[in-house]
Design a binder for these strands. Structure first.
Lengths: 187, 187
DNA sequence: GCTAAAAGCTAATCCCATTAACCAGACCTG
DNA sequence: CAGGTCTGGTTAATGGGATTAGCTTTTAGC
């Protein structure tokens, strides 16, 4: 029996990809093992069960989201930066619904948990965006939470089929961006 | 063996309560049956499996949320109405995280699905709130989606432990209300 | 009281996660 | 190159949860 050349990162990456395909609830150890050409119990040589797998997928997703938002923001400021960040975030969630879902409800276990560092990097990109607006230091945390709620709420609602009625969803999101921009400008 | 006097609504109500206690993922048919003083398979005389149970819980939750928001808004207009609606919504989600979680991702199967009617009633309360602002008809749908994203995003992030860092969460939510109010006023 | 549907129950099946125990190959050491 | 050990596979076994089948008893209507 030849070695499959797996390691925790490879398992997490395959798990993330599979979660995007079949949905996080559909991500099963057996299905993942099959995808990797290996028997189910072998996965346990690399990850400590489903919970650990989920955490690794979450860390990967947060890191990728941070990269995407960080890259999108490069070279922009003010409204352009805000729009770039929000669009990049939503695009990421819509393209990777499974791995993004894995990030919901996970909390870092230690300060140096990859989940913590990746979250902070993602948060940092949004903080940088806010520097393009004139905001009181005391308002920054609230503004960050507002942006996070907006982006998270919109993206998860859309990816969960939550927007049923008529109006165009992309248009709504652009409207949202404009709304947030005006609001931040008026602080 | 005496009859337990169950019916679909009673099962759904007990399921909702249990989901609030143990979390939606922890809601198991066996646990629910035990709670109702009945053996697991008996539940299937009232609900068509977990998916059906989830839909019933979702319908109940949406209906209750609609009641809460509707009642909270009574007699207010403008900023007061907006604040009342948003607070009522968040309070409901925080007090009933399990049943609210059941609403995520469910879609009505028919136009007269209780899920559809309850969603519409909840939506209606927010629509009524918007009437206190001078908003173009073409902006109403976008504004509704914005409010929904904000409330849903904030409440689910908070109930999932998503807000780690320092600042006071209640204060952030009040800030959010003020932000939305100013933004809607400036349309 | 009689019958039939409704609401329980037990037993059985299947799927999934996880653990235990075993085995082969890679790799390092002498 | 021979030998030992660690690693990453394997099969087999356990336990839990959902669901279905088939049986039995209560209860409602007549």
């Amino acid at each position: 029996m030849p070695r499959a050349g797996l390691d925790p990162a490879a398992v997490a990456a395959a798990g993330a990809a599979l979660a995007d395909e079949v949905g996080l609830p559909g991500l099963t150890m057996g299905l993942l093992a099959e995808r990797l050409g290996v028997r189910t119990p072998s996965l346990y040589k690399h990850v400590n069960g489903q919970d650990d797998l989920n955490r690794r997928i979450a860390a990967l997703a947060l890191s990728e989201a941070g990269d995407a938002v960080g890259a999108a923001v490069q070279g922009y400021a003010g409204r352009d930066a805000l729009a770039a960040a929000m669009r990049a975030f939503r695009t990421f969630v819509l393209e990777h619904p499974g791995r993004y879902a894995a990030t919901i409800g996970v909390e870092p276990l230690a300060p140096d948990d990859p989940i913590a560092t990746a979250s902070l990097r993602l948060l940092g990109s949004f903080t940088a965006v806010l520097r393009g607006y004139e905001i009181e230091r005391s308002d920054v945390d609230h503004a960050l939470r507002m942006l996070r709620s907006l982006c998270h709420g919109f993206a998860t609602l859309q990816s969960g089929g939550g927007f049923q009625w008529s109006a165009d969803v992309d248009e709504s999101f652009e409207w949202l961006i404009a709304f947030a921009d005006r609001g931040l400008r008026a602080l």
